[in-house]
Amino acid sequence: MIFLDDTDKKILNTIQFGFPLETEPYKKLGDELGISENEIIERLDRLHDEGAVRKIGPIINRRGVGGTSTLVAASVPEEKVDEVAEYINEYHEVSHNYHRPEKFNIWFTISAANRERIDTILEELHEKTGVEFVDLPTKKLFKIGVRFNIK
């Protein structure tokens, strides 16, 4: 596990939502947090290397760009989980894929340009793996806003 000091935590809690969209964002961030631009860049470089920051970029709304998404569950024998997960991960449209130790043990999300593409992916995956996939498309979105309160 990565050790974070108070300054790291302050930076991480700020840049999840408050990343300044400016030509020199790290300078602006430094001004806001009372740290030099160079130190911000050095710290982010380290936090990125260590895995605390995956990336800084746009979080895309698939519906907003004219597309759709779904959550898919599958019940796969444990000894086949890795193999099936690899087939799933091959698709660029798969954005998340997790193992959860339950009856349905593989859970993944597909975001695609349209519903037809999702159907095609699920059919192909079924042909490749023989697994039955349970398609759970969003009926209603009540909330989305991932923000980790880093303590």
């Binding site: 596990m1 990565i2 991480l12 260590e50 895995g51 995956r54 895309i60 980790f148």
Partner: peptide
Amino acid sequence: EKDIIRRFGASIGHRDIGI
């Protein structure tokens, strides 16, 4: 503004920091 991008910012490796 058009909600094509939900937000611009950092994606956190939450498992790596203990979440």
